[in-house]
Simulated assay, not measured.
Amino acid sequence: MQFPQHLLRYMPLAAIAGISVGAVAVLSRIDPNVPGNPLPPCPFYALTGLWCPGCGSTRCLHALVHLDLPQAMAMNPLLIVSIVPMLVMALHGAGLWPAKLGWLVRLFARPIPWLVLIVSYWLLRNLPWYPFNLLAPG
């Protein structure tokens, strides 16, 4: 039996929704800030001692689940900033984004600015000086 082709466009949105529900279920019960919690640490940080662009994401999402935006921003501001563009692109991919707002999708879907942003964030959050040290988790 073959999967209906017209439903394929909803798969990214369904995946985001499923992952979000799972993350909320886990992070509402488990606090990643507590030593010895069952959630895995960042392997890049464990190997290098440097923050990767995703470091602090679990603690950021935990803070969001508990509606603590300042704490979420302290853990990983890039994740907070990227949630809306990811949602916009997923809605567009499912055909649920208004055509009038297509300019916003074109703006968010440009890969070079994202690459520059992520690499810059990665480098800057590892600098030990103010204000760059504010980008490190916690």
Rank of each mutant, 00 (worst) to 15 (best):
I112C: 05
V119S: 13
L101Q: 06
L96K: 07
P70Q: 11
L61M: 14
G93V: 09
P70L: 03
P85G: 05
L69D: 11
Q71F: 09
L64W: 07
S57C: 08
L69V: 15
C55L: 06
G93P: 09
H92V: 01
P85W: 06
P85F: 01
A109T: 13
L124W: 07
C55Q: 10
W114F: 12
L107R: 13
L91T: 12
V65I: 02
R59I: 02
W122K: 04
G56H: 01
V88F: 12
A90G: 10
H62P: 12
N76C: 02
L69Q: 00
Y121Q: 01
V84C: 03
W114G: 08
D68L: 11
G49M: 07
L107W: 15
G93C: 09
P77M: 10
R59E: 05
T58M: 06
C55F: 10
P70A: 04
R59F: 06
T58L: 06
P113E: 11
P113I: 14
M73T: 03
L91F: 12
A63M: 03
R106F: 11
C60P: 10
A72K: 01
G102H: 14
L69E: 03
W114D: 03
W122P: 00
P85R: 00
L104I: 08
L87S: 15
V84D: 04
Y121A: 09
L69P: 06
P98F: 12
L104H: 12
L69T: 07
N76R: 02
R59G: 11
L127I: 09
V65R: 13
V81L: 15
W122M: 10
L69R: 08
L64G: 09
M86L: 13
C60I: 03
I80V: 15
I80E: 04
G56I: 01
L96H: 02
W103R: 07
P77F: 06
V119T: 14
V116L: 13
M86W: 04
L124C: 08
W97Q: 11
P53W: 03
W129E: 12
G93K: 07
S82E: 12
M75R: 07
R125T: 05
Y121K: 10
A94T: 00
A109I: 11
M73I: 13
T48D: 08
M89N: 14
V116N: 05
V84I: 14
L50H: 13
V81D: 07
W103S: 04
L87I: 13
P128L: 09
A72P: 07
W114V: 07
P111S: 05
T48Q: 07
L69N: 08
I83L: 15
L115R: 08
S120D: 01
